[in-house]
């Protein structure tokens, strides 16, 4: 009887812990909705999706913020994807065992660097370099933010992509090599396509990491709420959604229009992140349950 009771207790605790994640998620979303929804009738939609963000004068155009976030994130993925993929291939397929044992923990240490430290490093060291090397008016640009974010997204991308490559059965490699393929052909034509869903998952997680990052981005992107419309907009300053919330939330009077709009920006960010996660999950499900299960763990 007693073991069974104990079992029941443990089962209940574990279940409660599992369900609490959903519960908190729902609470957070409800709170966001409660605080942010009034913005959609307090501010006209034309203003809310307008081109000018200047809350002091009741101009709440979120368009520059959304485009700013997307630009910085896209830049980060373009930089991080080839680097991350190459590192994952190297660590899993090419590196000798002893090197892999050194590289893996080092890559994970990268993830532990606080973003404010990276942001400061970016502001002090990278910003002047970007300005001088690219000959742009200021080094506080979307590109600088992308560099910082790429660096931050790399550990996640590498770990997940590496797991995906590792999950490709050894028989695939053996088969390819037996057919006379070179090592590179095996990796490029057999292993990577087989690990496709996991690699896409790695990219999605990287995007999720990048779009939500605040501190480093706020310190190096210049925070100018301008519409990035030129072809060289990546090398001009931008203001992201997260930096706006962080910079302005402390100032607002609770319950005011500006307060509601900042939460509405939070909702927009939540929706974008949710879409990215949903797409990632769809990809995983299509990729087959075995590999998906492994990657989710």
């Amino acid at each position: 009887m007693r073991p069974r009771q104990r079992e029941f207790l443990v089962e209940t605790l574990v279940r409660a812990a599992g369900l609490s994640a959903i519960f908190f998620m729902a609470l957070i979303f409800l709170f966001l909705l409660k605080e942010g929804a009034p913005a959609f009738w307090e501010v006209s939609l034309g203003n809310l999706f307008g081109q000018r963000w200047y809350p002091n004068e009741d101009l709440f155009g979120t368009l520059p913020l959304i485009l700013g976030s997307l630009l910085v994130t896209a830049g980060a993925v373009i930089i991080a994807l080839p680097l991350g993929l190459a590192t994952a291939i190297f660590v899993r397929e090419l590196a000798p065992d002893w090197l892999r044992e050194i590289l893996k923990p080092l890559i994970e240490v990268l993830a532990g660097i606080p973003s404010v430290v990276l942001g400061f490093l970016g502001m002090v060291a990278i910003t002047p370099l970007v300005r001088e090397l690219l000959n742009v008016p200021t080094g506080l640009t979307a590109f600088t933010g992308s560099l910082m974010l790429a660096y931050m997204a790399l550990p996640t991308m590498i770990s997940v992509a590496e797991d995906a490559i590792d999950a490709v059965p050894k028989s695939y490699r053996d088969g390819a090599l037996a057919l006379g393929a070179t090592r590179w052909q095996t990796i490029w034509r057999v292993v990577l396509p087989a690990a496709r869903s996991g690699v896409i998952m790695a990219v999605m997680l990287g995007i999720g990491r990048a779009i939500g990052e605040t501190m480093a981005v706020m310190m190096v992107t210049g925070n100018a709420a301008r519409i990035p419309h030129e072809w060289y907009a990546l090398f001009m300053p931008v203001r992201t959604m997260t930096a706006t919330i962080a910079a302005e939330m402390g100032e607002v009077a609770r319950g005011g229009t500006h307060y509601h709009v900042l939460f509405a920006v939070g909702i927009l960010l939540f929706v974008v992140t949710f879409i990215i996660n949903a797409v990632a999950s769809l990809v995983i499900i299509r990729g087959g349950p075995r590999r998906g299960g492994r990657l989710m763990g």
């Binding site: 200047y54 520059p64 100018a224 709420a225 519409i227 300053p237």
Partner: peptide, 9 residues
């Protein structure tokens, strides 16, 4: 207004 290109530090 301030120019939209103003960097807000």
């Amino acid at each position: 207004l301030f120019s939209p290109n103003t960097l807000l530090m």
